[in-house]
């Protein structure tokens, strides 16, 4: 899978799993901040993303500091997954 496709897949998963009902894939820009002023995700959403990484991509994130960086944006998250899964 190309990184571009992975980004779109992540947007779909995030909308579905985090119940962002009022958003569509096109509303999420690749470099939008996932937390803070961007999508305004909260701490429970962060935990859901950690579960999603493990369940869907087999990546276990255990370092909170690493999480802060990995969940910066769709671009960063997709690159992180691609590096570890060769997707």
């Amino acid at each position: 899978m190309q990184v571009k496709e992975l980004r779109e897949e992540l947007k779909e998963k995030i909308i579905e799993q985090l119940n962002l009902e009022e958003l569509s894939v096109s509303d999420i820009k690749d470099d939008d901040a996932l937390f803070g002023d961007g999508l305004c995700l909260d701490s429970i959403d962060a935990l859901e993303l950690i579960v999603m990484l493990d369940k869907d991509y087999g990546i276990q994130l255990t370092d909170p500091k690493e999480g802060q960086e990995v969940f910066k944006s769709i671009t960063v998250l997709a690159d992180y997954i691609a590096e570890r899964t060769n997707k």
Binding site: L18, N19, I44, D45, L47, E48, V51, D54, K55
Partner: peptide
């Protein structure tokens, strides 16, 4: 075994 944090809360 993937409990959902958003359900658990």
């Amino acid at each position: 075994y993937y409990p959902s944090p958003s359900i658990f809360v």
